[in-house]
Write a protein that binds this DNA or RNA. Structure first.
Length: 472
RNA sequence: GCCGCGGUAGUAUAGCCCGGCCCAGUAUGCGGGCCUGUCAAGCCCGUGACCCGGGUUCAAAUCCCGGCCGCGGCGCCA
């Protein structure tokens, strides 16, 4: 082959200048770097301080920050480039590692060569102090916002929690499944689904993998889980709702009661919280003063009727068929923290009125229950085998036992005012041997939000979607 | 979806109630200058803005209407 152009030679041999393949992570300079040796580092320009013949450049990569010292009398060429650097430009530098009492971390790099790989325009937001810019504006420039270590940490924590959940499920015999997100019928019959055009038919974005994970159990996998997106077309303007979020879902067969399901939720959520604290506890403490960083002991499980009694003592009156409202959830979070020392609490036996059609009513889950009479005339306040999990006063998970008797299912669909015709394929699943089963869904961003003490769930979503925001 | 509050330089804000003293103040950024040990560097000089549309008025950043967007609360929810 004949090489004709200079560019082609560079392509084969690499760019001219400092050899980026010799690059070491900045943290290594402090942890195992030898003083006196030469190193190559590369990253973003975090700060530039020009003092005439000496320029200090703080360089940042994902592992940390180091001060580069660029002196005119060492390399005039490097010094000239350094004094013209704009913040967040990408540079690669070669220099000698030296001890310095004045430098952050006690070491700095005396630069001999400096290359600018990509110049940055003036920044539209202050990335050093995110709180100086409103969240909406930060989200417009999310890729810059995330260069801040605090903001990046949120997603390192999120990744670790998702990893811990996945590991917990696998270790406990759950099979990971991947269910459709384009669906032909709305799961729970509500209006809160996004419509999409699927060739010539209307279709919807899945608001939950609910019916499909049940299919997984009934299909014979017995225990399944999925970590995937869920879509809700509800125009909430709140600090805890997204229209697109990550749901950690599982479903398990051959359960004795919904207590078995709560055992799993408790196991998974504890594993997530412990993993985050183990891996990032110290850094979290540094950036998030409101974070929950204590190990979680046993999680109390309280009847909603009992919860309402506790609330009544504090002056909050709720009727038997009512769900807990926002204030009630916050209050019960405080009460449980005080009485049990737990940031987590299960509230169980929600009334039929407050639960979807597929929920197992307690009238069907008692010994000797007669199908389908047990579900015939459910009252609004009939207790169901269901629960919510609250973390620091916010709902982070919902679950329960599911109705697995096809006749009762039809009955319950009707009682919710829905048309059984629309759920034919779903009901059919229960006509060929469906074991007693249950499951739950955990909102990943909400867990992260509550652990770190974030004020807005949008911070816990890489690129959040809310009723207004579609870009970026 | 309902209720309330808001939209001023790249960013964050003052001014708005009580229209003219505002060709809009401050901080930071940005541009230029001085500076060889700074670390939110400092000092000097400069630059840059009233969300869009309509209305009231001699006069609108300021008052009124509509739109778009943002923030918070609620319902609801993960």
């Amino acid at each position: 082959m004949v090489l004709e152009s200079k560019e082609l030679v560079w392509c084969m041999a690499g760019m001219p200048g400092v050899d980026i393949s010799k690059r070491v992570p900045i943290r290594d300079l402090f942890e195992r770097g030898e003083v006196g040796r030469e190193y190559v580092v590369a990253g973003w320009v975090d700060a530039v301080r020009v003092h005439g013949g000496i320029v200090f450049v703080v360089l940042r990569d994902r592992s940390g920050r180091v001060q580069l010292v660029v002196k005119k009398n060492v390399s005039r060429e490097a010094w000239q480039k350094a004094r013209d650097l704009s913040l967040e430009s990408v540079v690669v530098a070669k220099g000698r590692l030296v001890e310095s009492k004045a430098a952050l971390g006690g070491r700095e790099l005396q630069v001999t060569e400096l290359e600018v790989l990509a110049e940055a325009d003036p920044l539209p937001i202050d990335i050093h102090e995110p709180e100086k810019t409103v969240l909406a504006k930060r989200l417009d420039w999310r890729f810059l916002d995330l260069r801040n270590p605090r903001n990046q940490l949120i997603f390192l924590v999120e990744a670790e929690m998702a990893r811990a959940a996945r590991q917990w499920f696998i270790e406990h015999g759950f099979v990971e499944i991947f269910t459709p997100k384009i669906v032909g019928s709305a799961t729970e019959g509500g209006a809160e689904v996004f419509t999409v055009i699927y060739f010539d038919k209307p279709a919807y974005l899945a608001q939950s993998p609910q019916l499909y994970k049940q299919m997984g159990v009934i299909a014979g996998f017995e225990k399944v889980f999925e970590i995937g997106p869920a879509f809700r077309a509800e125009p909430h303007h709140t600090t805890r709702h997204l229209t697109e979020y990550t749901s950690i879902d599982f479903e398990m067969g051959f359960i004795k009661s919904y207590e078995d399901v709560m055992d799993v939720v408790e196991g998974v959520v504890k594993a997530m919280i412990e993993a985050a604290i183990r891996k990032y506890g110290d850094v979290i403490r540094e950036y998030f003063p409101d974070a929950w960083l204590e190990p979680v002991k046993e999680v109390p499980r309280i009847d909603i009727a009992e919860v309402k009694q506790l609330l009544a003592k504090k002056g909050k009156i709720l009727s038997p068929e009512e769900d807990l409202d926002t204030e009630a959830e916050r209050m019960i979070g405080e009460i449980v923290l005080e009485e049990y020392g737990s940031p987590l609490v299960f509230v169980k036996r929600y009334p039929w009125n407050a639960r979807p059609f597929y929920t197992m009513p307690c009238t069907c889950a008692v010994e000797g229950a007669q199908y389908p009479e047990c579900c015939r005339d459910l009252r609004p306040d009939t207790p169901t085998c269901s629960f919510d999990l609250l973390f620091r006063g916010l709902e982070i998970a919902t679950g329960g036992q599911r109705q697995h008797n096809p006749q009762c299912l039809v009955e319950q669909i009707k009682q919710k005012g829905l048309n059984p015709e629309n759920f034919k394929w779903y009901i059919d699943m229960f006509r060929f041997g469906a074991p007693p089963h249950g499951g739950a869904g955990i909102g990943l961003e909400r867990v992260v939000m509550q652990l770190l003490g974030l004020k807005n769930i949008r911070e816990a979503r890489l690129v959040p979607r809310d009723p207004e925001r579609l870009i970026p």
